[in-house]
């Protein structure tokens, strides 16, 4: 019953007709405030992403562009690019290179239009003491390190973000299927469908999901106008969000923002199905591991050491 949620869409009022009625109403009152009100009203009854047909989606994206362009004062392009054939994204992170500078964190915040206040960060860089044998379970991490300069002597760093599990605990527990795994392996959230119960946050073993606890704020001048419906569009108060491997970029054949931002080239990303990809090279030539393997979540996010002998270096 639950896997096939597209079956019933025909019997539902299509969003397009609904919206047509609304736009007529909104045109009558030329005030943007009235328009915003109508938009909010439409959102309240908007269907799940997978139940929207192509026309519905087009209308919604157009509305979203209009609303966000008005709000952030720049031309916004909203897409819902579907997954590419024969593509499953994978990621690998070279722990021997990472210097803990957090540039990936800031690049991610900017790229994905994450709220600055309340502060939301999808990448967390954990600091560990070298020689500390309690790091693979992540028990003795320090996320709030603030040294004058990184890397600090005797420390090493483990950035963690959504591991894009092949067996995602978050998807299993969501009571309304607001979060699911796309065919290209990316686990996404429909920010208009999530009810904010936070069950997925309790279930995720990697602290990868962030809740928008209060009204999000994004500085106008830093707003990224290239958005994807399932990715970096601004989230709402009271819903959950997470790393999507920069779906707006990766589905357009680009690197994620964190890969580009890393000054030491610790981050590798690509198509696991493509034998010539960089990620496949890493998997085939490095000794890789994944976090919390004992939970069998089967992440598509790998860690490795390209240099030295690992933690003892």
């Amino acid at each position: 019953m639950s896997d096939d949620i597209k079956g019933k869409e025909k019997s539902l009022i299509t969003r397009r007709k609904f919206l047509a009625g609304l736009t007529a109403g909104a045109a009558a009152s030329a005030l943007p405030a009235g328009e915003a009100g109508a938009y909010a009203f439409e959102e309240l009854f908007r269907q799940h992403y997978k139940r929207l047909d192509a026309d519905d989606l087009k209308d919604i994206l157009a509305k979203l562009e209009e609303e966000l362009s008005f709000k952030y004062g720049k031309e916004v392009h909203a897409k819902a690019t579907p997954p590419m054939d024969n593509t499953v994204f994978g990621y690998a992170l070279d722990l021997s290179r990472c210097i803990g500078c957090r540039r990936c964190v800031y690049a991610c915040v900017k790229e994905n239009n994450l709220s600055r206040d309340p502060q939301i960060q999808w990448i967390k860089v954990l600091e560990f003491q070298k020689g500390n044998n309690k790091w693979q379970g992540l028990e003795h991490s320090n996320r709030y390190y603030e040294p004058e300069q990184v890397p600090e002597k005797g420390r090493f760093y483990v950035p963690v973000q959504c591991q894009q599990c092949k067996k995602p605990a978050c998807v299993k527990v969501c009571p309304v299927q607001a979060t699911w795994q796309e065919p290209d392996g990316i686990v996404v959230v429909d920010y208009n469908w999530c009810i904010g119960c936070r069950f997925c946050m309790a279930a995720c073993p990697y602290g990868a999901r962030s809740f928008t606890w209060g009204k999000p704020s994004i500085p106008k001048e830093e707003f990224n106008p290239e958005i994807h419906y399932l990715g970096n569009r601004p989230q709402y108060k009271g819903v959950v969000g997470k790393c999507t491997f920069c779906i707006q970029r990766s589905r357009a054949g680009r690197y994620t923002a964190c890969v580009e931002a890393c000054p030491v080239g610790a981050r590798k990303f690509g198509n696991l199905m493509d034998p010539n990809s960089e990620i496949r090279y890493v998997l085939e030539n490095m000794k890789v591991f994944r976090l919390k393997e004992e939970l069998d979540t089967n992440p598509k996010f790998f860690y490795f050491f390209s240099m030295g002998t690992g933690v003892k270096s």
Binding site: C194, I195, V240
Partner: peptide, 16 residues
């Protein structure tokens, strides 16, 4: 619930 106004998403058939 963070978004309690979406309670109907939980109703079988209408929601998911």
């Amino acid at each position: 619930m963070g978004s309690a106004e979406r309670f109907w998403h939980l109703i079988p058939m209408i929601g998911i």
